[in-house]
C-alpha cells in the first residue's frame, strides 16, 4: 500500500458515495447510464472471484465486498426506486460492442489460461471501457448535472492515481503488471476530454455543457 493507491481507492469510494447521494437527494437517476453501472457490477463480480479462495488483507476484503454490494445497490436504485427517472432512449450504447472484444482480448492476452485468471483479465479490460455508455449519453444530451460531473471526476481520478502507484511499486518492489497498467492508462485516457471541461468549467462554477 502506498499513498497513490490509498488516495486512488478513496477517490473510488468517494465516487460511489457521490453517486448514491445524488440519487437520494434529487430522487432521480437522470443523466446516469444504467449500462455503465451494470458493467461495473460485471467488472466487480468477475474480478473478485478470488474472494472465495484468496485472503489478501482485511482492507482488501472489505473493499471488495463494498464495491460488489454498492454497485448492485446502485442498479437496484436505478431499476426499481427511481426507475421512472431513467430514460432508456438516451442510454443506447451497445454494451456487447464492449463486452465481446474485451472477452476476446482476455482469451488472447492473459497471464494464465484458466477460468479465474481470464475472468480477472476480462474485468480489467471491461473496466477500462465501461464508462463509454455514460460518456456517450452525455455527448448526446450535451450536458450534465454538476453532481454527476463530480462523480465522474472522482471515478477518473481513482484510475489516474493508480498510475503513479504502479510507478512507485516498480521502483520499490520491482513489480510490473502490464495488463493492469496498459488498461489503466487507456481507462484514464478516456477521461482526458472530460477532465478538461471539468477543470476549466465546472470547477470555475460553470455548468457542464458540451459545444453543440
Amino acid at each position: 500500500m502506498n499513498i497513490f493507491r490509498l488516495l486512488g481507492d478513496l477517490a473510488h469510494l468517494a465516487s460511489i458515495f457521490i453517486l448514491v447521494h445524488k440519487m437520494h437527494t434529487t430522487r432521480s437517476c437522470r443523466g446516469i447510464s444504467f449500462k455503465t453501472q451494470a458493467l461495473y457490477v460485471v467488472v466487480f463480480v468477475t474480478r473478485y472471484i478470488d474472494l472465495f479462495y484468496s485472503w489478501i488483507s482485511l482492507y482488501n476484503f472489505v473493499m471488495k465486498i463494498f464495491f460488489i454490494s454498492s454497485s448492485c445497490y446502485i442498479l437496484y436504485l436505478m431499476k426499481y426506486r427511481f426507475r421512472p427517472t431513467h430514460d432508456p432512449t438516451l442510454d443506447t450504447f451497445k454494451v456487447e460492442y464492449l463486452a465481446g472484444p474485451c472477452f476476446a482480448l482476455a482469451l488472447i492476452f492473459n497471464y494464465h489460461f484458466d477460468f479465474t485468471e481470464i475472468m480477472w483479465t476480462f474485468s480489467i479490460y471491461l473496466e477500462a471501457v465501461a464508462i463509454f455508455p455514460q460518456l456517450f449519453m452525455m455527448q448526446r444530451t450535451g450536458e450534465a448535472e454538476t453532481i454527476t460531473t463530480h462523480y465522474l471526476a472522482a471515478l477518473g481520478i481513482y484510475r489516474a492515481l493508480y498510475i503513479p502507484n504502479w510507478i512507485y511499486r516498480y521502483y520499490t518492489e520491482g513489480t510490473v503488471d502490464p495488463i493492469a497498467i496498459v488498461a489503466g492508462i487507456v481507462q484514464t485516457g478516456l477521461y482526458l476530454d472530460f477532465f478538461y471541461v471539468y477543470f476549466t468549467k465546472v470547477l470555475q462554477g460553470q455548468k457542464f455543457e458540451l459545444p453543440a
Binding site: 493507491r5 481507492d9 473510488h12 474480478r47 478470488d50 479462495y53 484468496s54 489478501i56 488483507s57 482488501n60 473493499m63 471488495k64 464495491f67 497471464y111 494464465h112 484458466d114 479465474t116 485468471e117 480477472w120 493508480y162 502507484n165 513489480t175 510490473v176 503488471d177 502490464p178 495488463i179 493492469a180
Partner: peptide, 10 residues
C-alpha cells in the same frame, strides 16, 4: 507481477 492470484489491487 503476473503471478496467479497475486492480484492485490482493487
Amino acid at each position: 507481477g503476473g503471478k496467479q492470484s497475486g492480484h492485490d489491487e482493487l
